Simulated assay, not measured.
Amino acid sequence: MKHLKYILIFALSSATGTLQAQDLKELMKENRENREANYAKWGPTSDHDGMGYVVRAGFVLGGTTPLPLPKEIRKINEFAPKGGFSLGIDGYKYFNTRWGLSTGLRFFMQGMRTGAEVKNYNMAIVMGEDVVEGRFTGTDITETRMTGFTIPVTATYRVGARWTFNLGPYVSYWI
C-alpha cells in the first residue's frame, strides 16, 4: 500500500510535468511567431529580399580633443558643446534576419568652445599674410565649428527587431 501511494504521486507529478512541458513548447512557438512578426514589421526577414534604406536625423553632442591630452594644457576651465545636427541616408542588405551590410552618406554640423590654462603652448596667429608664431602661457579660448560628410561601410547585426549594432570603418570629409 505504501508503494502504491508513491507510485500514484510519481504518476501525477509526471503528468503535471508533461502538461507543463507541452505548455512551454506552445509558449516557445508563440514567442517565435511573435518575434518573426516583429522582424517583419521592423525590417527584412527571410521571406523578403533584405534590402532597404533608413533616413536618419539627429542631434550631435560632444566635442573634439587630441588624445592623449598635450602636457602643455594644465587645466580645463570651460567646456561647452555647441551641439549640432546630422542628416543622412543609409542603404542596407541583409543576408538573413540577423546579419547584413550597410553603407550611407551623412551630413553633420557640430561645434564646441573650450577655455584652458596652458603653459608653453606652441601657437601661430595668421592675419592675412602676416604670421606670428611662438609659445604662449595663459588662458587659451578655442572655438570649433565643423561641417562635413561621413560615409560609413559597416557590418550589421540585429540583436532584436528594433536593435541593430554596426561595426566598421567610415570616411569623413570636413568642409
Rank of each mutant, 00 (worst) to 15 (best):
117 E>H: 13
75 K>I: 10
149 F>W: 15
108 F>Q: 02
99 W>S: 06
82 K>I: 04
131 V>R: 11
134 G>T: 07
169 P>I: 11
142 T>R: 10
107 F>W: 13
106 R>T: 12
96 N>G: 12
61 L>K: 09
63 G>T: 02
65 T>L: 12
137 T>E: 04
75 K>A: 09
154 T>I: 10
96 N>V: 12
156 T>G: 07
145 R>V: 02
119 K>H: 06
62 G>F: 08
135 R>A: 11
125 I>M: 08
89 I>N: 02
81 P>N: 06
97 T>Y: 05
137 T>V: 02
120 N>S: 12
80 A>D: 08
137 T>F: 01
98 R>K: 11
61 L>M: 14
121 Y>L: 02
116 A>D: 00
68 P>M: 00
124 A>H: 02
147 T>Q: 10
115 G>K: 05
127 M>D: 12
61 L>W: 14
144 T>H: 02
62 G>E: 11
119 K>F: 08
115 G>V: 04
111 G>R: 00
81 P>R: 05
147 T>C: 11
105 L>Y: 01
144 T>V: 10
128 G>A: 04
61 L>T: 13
116 A>V: 00
91 G>I: 10
119 K>S: 10
137 T>Y: 04
103 T>D: 05
161 A>F: 15
67 L>E: 12
134 G>K: 04
65 T>D: 06
161 A>V: 15
88 G>F: 00
159 V>Q: 13
113 R>H: 00
79 F>P: 08
138 G>A: 03
89 I>T: 05
75 K>S: 13
136 F>Q: 04
66 P>R: 13
126 V>M: 02
128 G>F: 10
144 T>R: 08
161 A>I: 14
130 D>Y: 13
74 R>P: 00
167 L>D: 09
67 L>M: 14
132 V>T: 07
130 D>E: 15
80 A>Q: 11
130 D>G: 11
105 L>M: 09
156 T>W: 04
97 T>C: 05
153 V>I: 14
91 G>F: 14
153 V>G: 07
